[in-house]
């Protein structure tokens, strides 16, 4: 097996050569989509108890048992760290691939955040639909369904790209199985959780659920959360929302998450509430 260092060196040489050959014709280098292998390595030299490192690594994605070179990280550990950091930055900065959104017939709405910098610096900008999107929604959306699903890029487009294609159909299948009416899902670009309140005020649904990319970390850049709220209004606060987080390949798998969320939404429809109030009601009902 190639070491990570060898893999990275190979990639860099390839990228440089590609740039060289294309630099005569175009200034722009080819956009590279690099995938590095995902194995965890035992960096400790001559471990006294190798099995215990394997066992410990199996229960956490944290960087443990990676060894050291003198007082520093080994080159491969450092490169792995940089790769994960770059993936996290990409997840925030890049946009969701529109091809994927098209495949799922998701209309693309926008918030009032005109560009990425505004979106990142001004939190309120990601919480309101742009006038144009609000108008479109008013005219085109099916109103009065029980559930409205939103797909939001939030802080990780990668999370949406990797989970939504499996989560969305599993969720819709579960809701239909319980005869719950669902409005066609929408995608909202540069959006934060609270935008669901604005959308709900227009579409007049009982429950609105946002599938939104979480702030990426170094363990994964692909984690998605689901935020749900029952009939939000101007008095809605964070405690009124229910959240299920950690949806990704290495956490709760997106297909199982979809099935679980459909059950949770069904219970909220019966309880007619969400968030802390919902938890309290369930507590009283089951005891």
């Amino acid at each position: 097996m190639k070491t990570l260092t060898e893999e990275v060196v190979e990639m860099v040489i390839k990228a440089l050569e590609a740039q060289k050959s294309s630099s005569n014709e175009k200034r722009e280098g080819p956009s590279l989509n690099i995938k590095f292998s995902e194995y965890s390595e035992i960096g400790v030299l001559n471990p006294r108890n190798r099995d215990s490192i394997v066992r410990a690594q199996a229960i956490t994605p944290a960087r443990i048992g990676i060894g050291r070179a003198g007082t520093r990280m080994r080159t491969s550990s450092y490169l792995r760290f940089r790769i994960d950091h770059a993936a996290a930055q990409d997840a925030v900065r890049k946009d969701v691939n529109e091809e994927i959104l098209k495949q799922f017939n998701l209309p693309i709405l926008k918030t009032i955040a005109a560009d990425m910098d505004t979106y990142l610096m001004n939190l309120d900008a990601g919480r309101k639909l742009s006038d144009c999107s609000a108008e479109w929604l008013e005219k085109n959306i099916e109103k009065g369904n029980q559930v409205q699903i939103l797909v939001c890029d939030g802080l990780s487009s990668s999370a949406v790209e990797s989970n939504m294609p499996d989560l969305l159909p599993a969720l819709i299948q579960g809701l239909k199985l319980k005869n719950i009416t669902v409005a066609p899902p929408l995608f909202i670009k540069r959006s934060r959780v609270w935008v669901q309140d604005h959308v709900a005020s227009i579409v007049n649904c009982d429950l609105i659920i946002s599938l939104i990319g979480e702030r990426p970390g170094l363990a994964t850049a692909e984690s998605l959360s689901a935020y749900m709220v029952y009939r939000p209004n101007e008095k809605t606060v964070e405690a009124d929302r229910t959240v299920i987080s950690n949806i990704h390949k290495g956490g709760l798998s997106p297909v199982e998450a979809g099935a679980y969320l459909s059950d949770l939404l069904a219970k909220m429809l019966i309880s007619k509430c969400s968030g802390v109030q919902f938890s309290q009601k369930r507590y009283l009902e089951t005891n």
């Binding site: 199985l177 798998s253 199982e256 099935a259 459909s262």
Partner: peptide, 14 residues
């Protein structure tokens, strides 16, 4: 073995 029972169960029902 894996955490997939709800989605597989719902799929069979669907």
């Amino acid at each position: 073995q894996d955490d997939l029972a709800k989605v597989l169960g719902q799929t069979l029902l669907a």
